[in-house]
Each structure stands twice: as C-alpha cells, then as structure tokens.
Nucleic acid binder design. Structure first.
Lengths: 335, 335
DNA sequence: CTGAAAGCGCTTACAG
DNA sequence: CTGAAAGCGCTTACAG
C-alpha cells in the first residue's frame, strides 16, 4: 500500500480511499488505480479485518454437508451470502455435542462475524446458557422464544399435513420413521407431534409399534427402519418419513421385499430434495421454502451483527405438500 | 491479551507462549490459563494472521456445492482440512468463466492460504497464464504437466472400463451422455476418448448419433438426453453416462417411456454417489477413491504452501467399476 | 525462561 | 480533498 502510494505520489490515506470508494478526485483516482494495477497490489484482508474488527466471513455449521438437504441449503446460503459481500465457511459437527458446543461458543476464535447453525444435539436450554456473543442464527428447530434468533418452518403443521394426506387416501396403518427420543426439543419431536395430531384428527389409533426411531437421517437408516416395519405381524400401508433420504432408503427396502409403492404402501418424505423428484416412484414430500430459509437466516444474521443487543427474533418460513407418485398421484408410467 | 498478561502478572510474550504451546514454567502456565479462563479471552485471529502472513483458511471452489459428487467431496475435504488445522471456505463458480478466472487469480484478496479448484470452463492454458501466486490445486481434469498441481483419476481408463463392461454384456448400441464440445480439455473429453476406445476394442462402430452432449451434469440434463435417445429410429441398448446424476435422470426417462433397466437398456454412471446405491435399480458406476482425492488434494496444497516454488505435481487416484443392477447384476427383487 | 518493543498492513480520527 | 500519525492485537527477534 505504501508502494502504491509512493508510485502514485499520494498518501496511503488516498490509496485507502480509492480502494474503499471514498471521494477522490478523478485524476488522482486514475493515478492510484494505475499504480495498483502496475504493482498488482491487493489489500491484505487480515490487516483490514484487524482494523475493522470484522472478517466478512460467516460460518454455516451443519452435521454433514453431503446430506442432500444441507447441500442444497449450503448452496443457497453461499449464494445469498455472496450477494451481501460475505463468504461462507463450512463447519461439520457430525451431530457431536462437543463440536456443537464449540459452535455455540463462537467457534474458538474470532474468525467469523456470525454463524448459521443447524443443531442436532443442542437444545434451547444449552443455547440459552451460552456466554459467547458471536451472532448466532439457529436453523430448523422451534426453540422457545427469547433464546436466540432462529428460522424454521412450522414442522408440526407440515407433518400434520403430510400425515393427513395419507389418511385422506384411505390409509389406515400409517407408520412414522425418524423419531429421535434422545432429543426432546428437536425437529423430530415437532414432526412426531404433527403426525400424532393428524392420526387423531382422522380418528386413527396411534400404534406405537409403527413409530420408528432413526439415529441419523441417511438412506441406510430409512432402509433399516423399513425392514423392521415389514417384519411386523401387521405391517403399515403407509409411511411418513421425517426426511427424504429416510424415505428413499425405505422405498428401496420396501421394493426389495415385494411391496408395490404406492399400491401396497404409500410413502411421504420431507425436504423436497432433488433426488426425490426423479426417483421411481417420485416422492411425495413436504417442500420447505429453502431459498426463503437461506434469505431469512442471512437477514437475521446481518441484522444481529448490526444490532447485537436487539431482542431475538423467530421467522417461520412457508412450506407446501407436493404430491407425487409415491403416495398415489398419476400413472407411474407413460408408455 | 494485555489484560490477561496483567491479570496473570506476566508479559504478553508469556501469554503468547502459553497460547502457542511454547515452553513456559508449569506454575506460570497455570496462572496464565486461569487468567484466560477468567477473562474469557480468545485470540484475535485477524491479528495473528496479519503477523503470521497466513489465515488458516483454504477455499474449495466448485461449480455448485449441492451437486452430489461435490457435496460428498466437500464433506471429505472439510474433514481432512480440519485434521490439518485448516478451515474450508466454499466458493461457487457456477461454471462461469469470469468467476473461475477470479478463483485462478487468487480470489480477490489474501483471504485464503490456498485453493482447491474444480474447473469447468478454464483449461490448462488459461491456468498457465495465471500470475497470482496463491497455491492452487486443480481437481478432476488431466492437465498437461507443468502447469499446476492437480489430482485426478484416470478418466480415459475409467470410461473405457465402464464401456467395456457394457460391451462385455453383449450390448451393441452403447450410447454416451455427457460430452461437452465447448471444453476440449475437460474431464468430459477424457471420458469420451475412453468410451470411443472401448467401442474400438470391442469392434463396435461408433455411431455419432448415440453421443449426446450435456451442458450441465444434473438429473434434468440426463433426462433430456435420454428422451432424445429414445426418439432415435434405432435406440441404444445401453447408456454410459459421464456422471451418476445424468444416469439417474436418464433412468427416470427410460422408465417413463417403458424401457426396462437393464433388460432393454443397461445404464452405467460415474462417481458412485450415495443416491445411486439405493436407487431402483441400483446404479452400476465408476467409483473414484473420493477420500483419496480429498487427501491428495490437501497434501499437495499443504506442500505447495510450504514450498511455493517446487515443480508442479500430478497425482492419479484409483477408481474401480462397481457393477450393480442397472447393468444386469443380480435379481432386482428378493421376495 | 521472560520482558520491552517493533512491526505486520491496514483504517480513521485529527489537522491542515 | 489530502497528509501524517496512531492504533487494531497479535508475534517475534532482541536483550537480559
């Protein structure tokens, strides 16, 4: 920078002004810009950050970035952040409580200006206890108000809609895959409530043997849960899976065991990932407004960075049921 | 840091030594650590970076992080980087030449210590022209030696194996989906050569009408290409797709149009993404050693950071053919 | 083994 | 509109 100033015959202040778009005489600006180009000068971000007290980096902390839902979300968040001049750094917690605590504690050092965090093991009590002040936005969990900013869809309503859809198709033994008994505050619990509520609404009994936990939400877990269900004395005629990968895994097993989908068993998922749209049969699912989630998360985070002490906010993003072949929409083959 | 030093009754030098694990007397260390805990002190990374001349951040630049192959790779790279004390920042180029140029130019500012880059539009000539000195590792393209470090599998051999497998099953009209005529130096070109070579090996004629370009490598592109193929007067009895998402999209269309897989058309993909394993039918594919790619890329990058002027290196990672149902392995249903 | 001080490369009041 | 100088919070020779 000093070299640029020397070459342009101005002070470093002027160089700084040119770089940061302050008012500088056209001729001077021209000289400085030429000097910058000649020298191949580029500002040192660390120095700027040190001075400004910010880094221009935000973290996205998820369990695993190759889970399709998170991959799609990451894409949107990276793009949205870029529009706001921020860069996204990825942190993978693997759902490990220690690593989640690290996120809640601001990720060790003042590396990021803020964090978008999708918790697995942490609940709102853990988060309420945090002392770190790094702006933090929670994703995908309905935390009781007052704890932290967060963005979610109405998981209870969405699960209720999904289950009601199956009941509306005349299904009577509707299973659920994906409960997580160890995380009482999580998204899974919300979806389970919605599921139970819808059975009630439809006057169907809740058969606890049809409610299957899943430790993770990978295809493998869905496949295993479906295997268990098919071995029941009285197997289900429909399955509501708490996410799409569970549903895709479950459908694979159901197919292997000779069940026709949707004729013998209807399947509904959650997330509307790209995989489900092209699967045979295509997957009925709850489609959250992912772009809306990304946008809201970034807006909340930038607002929080600007006003650290403002009261926590909660944004509920819309969702809709997308009915496809796996629950009986349309022909499965157009010859 | 000054506050910590004051509270512990030592100089900042000693605090720095404690933080960075230098030799400090046990009693002193103890006092400093307590002061750090009491004050909730955390080092300012920007200041450290400014001093050290590095940031501890590496960039992964890919077209879109929600493409399953990149999502899986991102996961591995984030994990591997973490083992080495580095954090990964995601840059999405969308395959846009301008954005790719920005990556090749070191991403604007001295924000990252190095870059792992999967180019789409840039070829090795573009990269040879670069003047920026940010350590850069290329992924997935076989660039002629001497340009830059890079990691790839042997795409020609892999494509040849995949195609030979189809020919070995008695397929005679083997189509290819995924050529990219505009990028003569890219991975697609390698896979096309391997495909052509295998047809030759098998004594099969090359029918240019069976070779279909794909602008992107999404399911949609595969679906469209397959639609074209089914409308040929003489449709193929096998399709080699240059990646798995193309194959999954193609299979959806083939199914919709009444083709049985693999009976009427066998399908082979490339990448071995998780989706293909659970699909019905499961997808035969080339499985690159993705963990090996992540490991090699990081190793090359860290070596390059340590020795900026060492000669460029090329690492070839292994791959293997995984035969599954889509090309005729085993029963499609176990009742 | 520890202290006092310089300096990394910026930004920004403070003068002019 | 521009210059000279302080200071952001670290690390690291240089002394002791």
């Amino acid at each position: 920078m000093k070299d640029v100033a020397a070459r342009a015959g101005v002070s470093v202040k002027t160089v700084s002004n040119v770089i940061n778009g302050a008012h500088v005489g056209a001729a001077t600006r021209e000289r400085v810009e030429r000097a910058i180009a000649d020298l191949g000068y580029r500002p040192n971000i660390s120095a700027r950050n040190l001075r400004r007290g910010r880094t221009g980096i935000l973290a996205l902390a998820v369990s695993e970035v190759d889970v399709p839902y998170f991959a799609e979300l990451a894409r949107l968040i990276v793009d949205t952040a870029e529009e706001h001049g921020y860069t996204i750094l990825i942190d993978q917690t693997g759902g490990d409580p220690k690593r989640e605590q690290y996120v809640v504690d601001g990720m060790g050092a003042r590396l990021v200006d803020g964090i978008v965090f999708s918790p697995v093991a942490m609940d709102h009590l853990d988060i309420a206890r945090r002392t770190d002040t790094t702006p933090l936005i929670l994703l995908g969990e309905r935390v009781s108000a007052g704890t932290a900013d967060h963005v979610a869809i109405d998981n209870v309503a969405a699960a209720r809609t999904a289950t009601a859809h199956l009941a509306g198709q005349g299904r009577r033994r509707i299973a659920a895959i994906g409960t997580q008994p160890s995380y009482a505050q999580g998204t899974a619990t919300m979806r389970e409530s919605g599921y139970r509520a819808a059975l009630n609404d439809a006057g169907l009994p809740v058969d606890e043997s049809l409610i299957v936990a899943a430790r993770q939400y990978h295809r493998r877990d869905g496949a295993e849960a479906a295997a268990y269900l098919t071995e029941l004395e009285n197997p289900p005629d429909a399955v509501f899976c708490f996410n799409d990968t569970l549903a895709l895994g479950a459908m694979r097993t159901l197919h292997d065991r000779g069940y026709r989908i949707p004729e013998d068993v209807a399947v509904v998922g959650f997330d509307d990932i790209d995989d489900g749209r092209y699967n045979v049969p295509s997957l009925t699912t709850i489609s959250p407004d992912k772009a809306g989630i990304a946008r809201s998360a970034l807006r909340l985070l930038l607002d929080r960075i600007a006003a650290v002490d403002s009261p926590p906010r909660e944004v509920t993003v819309s969702h809709e049921l997308r009915v496809r072949e796996s629950s009986g929409a349309g022909p499965r083959r157009r010859p």
